[in-house]
Protein backbone atom coordinates (compact mmCIF):
# COMPACT_ATOMS: atom_id res chain seq x y z
CA UNK A 1 0.00 0.00 0.00
CA UNK A 2 2.11 2.89 1.15
CA UNK A 3 5.60 2.86 -0.22
CA UNK A 4 8.52 2.03 1.95
CA UNK A 5 11.34 4.48 1.79
CA UNK A 6 14.05 3.78 4.29
CA UNK A 7 15.20 7.36 4.27
CA UNK A 8 11.81 8.84 5.12
CA UNK A 9 10.80 9.78 8.66
CA UNK A 10 8.37 7.43 10.39
CA UNK A 11 5.39 9.78 10.05
CA UNK A 12 5.80 10.21 6.30
CA UNK A 13 3.72 7.69 4.32
CA UNK A 14 3.54 8.59 0.67
CA UNK A 15 0.77 6.63 -1.00
CA UNK A 16 1.74 4.94 -4.25
CA UNK A 17 0.46 6.65 -7.39
CA UNK A 18 -0.95 3.33 -8.52
CA UNK A 19 -3.25 3.19 -5.51
CA UNK A 20 -4.25 6.84 -5.86
CA UNK A 21 -5.22 6.37 -9.50
CA UNK A 22 -7.00 3.13 -8.61
CA UNK A 23 -9.06 4.94 -6.00
CA UNK A 24 -9.80 7.75 -8.45
CA UNK A 25 -11.09 5.39 -11.14
CA UNK A 26 -13.09 3.55 -8.50
CA UNK A 27 -14.71 6.86 -7.54
CA UNK A 28 -15.47 7.71 -11.17
CA UNK A 29 -16.97 4.26 -11.68
CA UNK A 30 -19.21 4.68 -8.66
CA UNK A 31 -20.28 8.15 -9.82
CA UNK A 32 -21.25 6.79 -13.23
CA UNK A 33 -23.05 3.93 -11.51
CA UNK A 34 -25.07 6.20 -9.26
CA UNK A 35 -26.09 8.49 -12.14
CA UNK A 36 -26.96 5.48 -14.28
CA UNK A 37 -29.07 3.80 -11.59
CA UNK A 38 -30.82 7.10 -10.97
CA UNK A 39 -31.52 7.70 -14.66
CA UNK A 40 -32.38 4.13 -15.63
CA UNK A 41 -33.14 2.43 -12.31
CA UNK A 42 -36.89 2.39 -12.44
CA UNK A 43 -36.79 1.59 -16.15
CA UNK A 44 -34.79 -1.55 -15.40
CA UNK A 45 -37.39 -2.69 -12.92
CA UNK A 46 -35.77 -1.43 -9.76
CA UNK A 47 -38.40 -0.58 -7.16
CA UNK A 48 -38.49 3.20 -6.55
CA UNK A 49 -38.06 2.60 -2.84
CA UNK A 50 -34.56 1.25 -3.56
CA UNK A 51 -33.35 4.37 -5.33
CA UNK A 52 -32.57 6.44 -2.26
CA UNK A 53 -30.88 3.72 -0.17
CA UNK A 54 -28.87 2.63 -3.20
CA UNK A 55 -27.68 6.20 -3.87
CA UNK A 56 -26.69 6.54 -0.21
CA UNK A 57 -24.86 3.20 -0.18
CA UNK A 58 -22.87 4.24 -3.27
CA UNK A 59 -22.13 7.65 -1.73
CA UNK A 60 -20.91 5.97 1.44
CA UNK A 61 -18.67 3.65 -0.56
CA UNK A 62 -17.21 6.71 -2.27
CA UNK A 63 -16.80 8.44 1.08
CA UNK A 64 -15.00 5.36 2.41
CA UNK A 65 -12.56 5.38 -0.51
CA UNK A 66 -11.84 9.09 -0.08
CA UNK A 67 -11.40 8.83 3.69
CA UNK A 68 -9.31 5.68 3.72
CA UNK A 69 -6.87 6.46 0.92
CA UNK A 70 -7.01 10.10 -0.16
CA UNK A 71 -7.23 11.24 3.46
CA UNK A 72 -4.70 8.62 4.60
CA UNK A 73 -6.99 7.35 7.34
CA UNK A 74 -5.78 3.84 6.64
CA UNK A 75 -2.31 4.82 7.87
CA UNK A 76 -3.37 7.50 10.32
CA UNK A 77 -3.33 7.36 14.10
CA UNK A 78 -6.44 5.62 15.36
CA UNK A 79 -7.18 8.55 17.66
CA UNK A 80 -7.57 10.87 14.66
CA UNK A 81 -9.86 8.39 12.96
CA UNK A 82 -11.88 8.03 16.15
CA UNK A 83 -12.14 11.81 16.53
CA UNK A 84 -13.42 12.22 13.00
CA UNK A 85 -15.83 9.31 13.09
CA UNK A 86 -17.21 10.52 16.43
CA UNK A 87 -18.54 13.55 14.54
CA UNK A 88 -20.77 11.17 12.60
CA UNK A 89 -22.16 9.91 15.89
CA UNK A 90 -23.12 13.45 16.81
CA UNK A 91 -24.62 14.07 13.38
CA UNK A 92 -26.72 10.94 13.86
CA UNK A 93 -27.83 12.20 17.27
CA UNK A 94 -28.60 15.63 15.83
CA UNK A 95 -30.72 14.26 12.99
CA UNK A 96 -32.28 11.51 15.12
CA UNK A 97 -33.35 13.76 17.97
CA UNK A 98 -34.76 16.35 15.57
CA UNK A 99 -36.69 13.72 13.65
CA UNK A 100 -38.24 12.47 16.87
CA UNK A 101 -39.63 15.93 17.51
CA UNK A 102 -41.07 16.84 14.11
CA UNK A 103 -44.64 15.96 15.00
CA UNK A 104 -44.64 18.22 18.04
CA UNK A 105 -46.28 21.26 16.49
CA UNK A 106 -48.22 19.51 13.76
CA UNK A 107 -51.65 20.04 15.42
CA UNK A 108 -50.91 23.75 15.79
CA UNK A 109 -49.90 24.00 12.14
CA UNK A 110 -52.99 22.14 11.02
CA UNK A 111 -55.26 24.35 13.11
CA UNK A 112 -53.55 27.42 11.67
CA UNK A 113 -53.97 26.14 8.14
CA UNK A 114 -57.64 25.36 8.62
CA UNK A 115 -58.26 28.87 9.97
CA UNK A 116 -56.35 30.48 7.16
CA UNK A 117 -58.04 28.45 4.51
CA UNK A 118 -61.43 29.33 5.97
CA UNK A 119 -60.53 33.02 5.85
CA UNK A 120 -59.49 32.81 2.24
CA UNK A 121 -62.68 31.10 1.23
CA UNK A 122 -64.80 33.65 3.09
CA UNK A 123 -62.94 36.55 1.50
CA UNK A 124 -63.59 35.13 -1.93
Amino acid sequence: MSEHHDDLPAFCHPVSTKLLFGVFFGLIGLTVLTVATSALGTGLGMPPAFAFPLAMVIATMKAFLVCAFFMHMYWDKSFNVLAFLSSLLFVTLFIGMTMMDTGEYQPTIEAFDINNLANVEVSE
Binding site: C12, T17, F21
Partner: peptide
Protein backbone atom coordinates in the same frame (compact mmCIF):
# COMPACT_ATOMS: atom_id res chain seq x y z
CA UNK B 1 -14.12 17.58 -7.99
CA UNK B 2 -13.01 13.95 -7.73
CA UNK B 3 -10.22 14.68 -10.18
CA UNK B 4 -9.13 17.65 -8.09
CA UNK B 5 -9.06 15.32 -5.09
CA UNK B 6 -6.77 12.98 -7.01
CA UNK B 7 -4.37 15.79 -7.94
CA UNK B 8 -4.48 17.01 -4.34
CA UNK B 9 -3.55 13.55 -3.09
CA UNK B 10 -0.75 13.44 -5.67
CA UNK B 11 0.37 16.87 -4.48
CA UNK B 12 0.53 15.62 -0.89
CA UNK B 13 2.60 12.67 -2.06
CA UNK B 14 4.96 14.97 -3.95
CA UNK B 15 5.37 17.16 -0.86
CA UNK B 16 6.02 14.09 1.30
CA UNK B 17 8.83 13.12 -1.05
Amino acid sequence: LLFSSLTMALGVRAAQL
